[in-house]
Simulated scan of single mutants.
Amino acid sequence: MKAFFFLPKSAMNEATQYYTDLIIKSFEGCQIVISQEPIVDADIDIIVTIRVGDQRQLKFKDKKKKYFYINWYQGIGPEEYELLYNYTLRAKLGKIYLTYYEKKSFKKTDLFLFVSEEMKVFYEKKYNLDLKDKALIIPCYNKLLDLKSFEVEKKYEKLSFVYAGALYGWQCIDESLQVFKNVYEFDQSATLTLLTGQKEEGEALIEKYNLKNVSIGFVKLEELQDELKKYKYGFLLRKDDPINNVATPTKMNSYLAAGIIPIYTDVVNSFEENIKLGNYSIKCNLEKNSIQEISNSIIEFNKKTIEIGKIREVYCSNFDNYYNDDKYINMIKDKLTQVKIKR
């Protein structure tokens, strides 16, 4: 069998590259064609795309042939667009447009790669489908656990925080900064580093909340993990809505891979079902907990002594069970074997 991966340059970044490499590894025994151009030769059997809109760009040399389509659904695009543009008229029109092509994609796709079980359930309800035998669940991640990150000198003795990524409101950067401000008022040794390319926006937020001990840094993507492992705590706050319920933010993977203790909300269903950190996380809910309550939980948590051997063991377990390449490669292999039998 021969598989065609349509991977245009505009679709590729560190996260999508890792994910597609994972899929490619599962195509053992198949001839693979990786292309930035949408031209599908007549001898192709399986077509893999990683964005909903990419399927409609394909051009076929054999238009009568029936292909087996695999598509990775990275998020619930129409709903994300509506949020991004603040539910304006433009947002609503955009959602209608994107839903139209999403629905066409669902009719064509034979194997759905979802990032969470919650995403599968969301789409089953949205389109009144039963996808049980047509879907695989693979969370978003792109880092393996760095065991050396637990051994950084005095890492868990410092009251150090990090926020990595873009400074968008929907990522709850404002709430993260307010929490930090409260912690700092209790203990002036607390530091926060914003690792972001949005320096001006970061400076404006620091001024808005009159923050002390907050710095803005930027490192190249390939250097990010080496930087992250210097910190004890990482912010990953989200609000309770369908977009966050179905997501699996790669930020969690980046934090855990660097031995960071995450401060996160309990609204990401996949994390609730699969990530088991025991005493090594600070979990909250923005709809139920006030900023002061979240701050107090951090202050209380920080009184604990972190045992390096135990936290390493807990994190290893999560990478063995959740962020595990072999697990997902074998899942896809098994499904492809079924495809071969049917064909």
Score class of each variant (00 low, 15 high):
residue 213 N to T: 08
residue 205 L to W: 00
residue 263 I to V: 15
residue 214 V to S: 03
residue 221 L to C: 06
residue 185 E to W: 05
residue 213 N to A: 08
residue 273 E to K: 11
residue 268 V to F: 10
residue 274 N to T: 10
residue 175 E to S: 10
residue 172 C to Q: 03
residue 169 G to H: 05
residue 172 C to G: 01
residue 284 C to P: 00
residue 239 K to C: 11
residue 259 G to I: 08
residue 284 C to E: 10
residue 195 L to F: 12
residue 255 Y to K: 00
residue 239 K to R: 13
residue 243 I to L: 14
residue 175 E to N: 15
residue 225 Q to C: 03
residue 274 N to S: 06
residue 285 N to E: 04
residue 249 P to G: 10
residue 242 P to V: 12
residue 272 E to D: 03
residue 184 Y to E: 09
residue 169 G to D: 14
residue 197 G to T: 12
residue 253 N to A: 03
residue 282 I to E: 02
residue 193 T to D: 13
residue 208 K to Y: 07
residue 270 S to V: 01
residue 214 V to Y: 02
residue 256 L to H: 06
residue 224 L to H: 01
residue 273 E to V: 01
residue 225 Q to P: 00
residue 194 L to D: 02
residue 212 K to V: 04
residue 284 C to Q: 07
residue 253 N to W: 07
residue 266 D to C: 11
residue 217 G to F: 14
residue 278 G to F: 02
residue 208 K to G: 07
residue 190 A to M: 09
residue 237 L to Q: 08
residue 243 I to V: 15
residue 170 W to V: 00
residue 267 V to A: 05
residue 252 M to I: 14
residue 258 A to R: 03
residue 184 Y to A: 03
residue 208 K to Q: 09
residue 259 G to V: 06
residue 283 K to S: 05
residue 204 A to S: 11
residue 261 I to A: 01
residue 186 F to C: 13
residue 273 E to L: 02
residue 209 Y to D: 09
residue 206 I to K: 05
residue 240 D to E: 15
residue 206 I to S: 08
residue 189 S to H: 11
residue 223 E to A: 15
residue 254 S to Q: 14
residue 237 L to P: 06
residue 228 L to P: 00
residue 249 P to H: 13
residue 214 V to A: 03
residue 230 K to A: 09
residue 179 V to E: 04
residue 226 D to N: 14
residue 212 K to A: 13
residue 185 E to M: 11
residue 258 A to H: 10
residue 244 N to V: 05
residue 215 S to G: 12
residue 205 L to S: 13
residue 190 A to D: 06
residue 224 L to D: 02
residue 199 K to H: 13
residue 215 S to F: 14
residue 250 T to P: 02
residue 253 N to M: 10
residue 173 I to T: 03
residue 172 C to S: 09
residue 280 Y to I: 12
residue 227 E to G: 05
residue 284 C to S: 13
residue 286 L to D: 00
residue 249 P to S: 07
residue 206 I to C: 02
residue 228 L to F: 10
residue 184 Y to M: 02
residue 179 V to R: 01
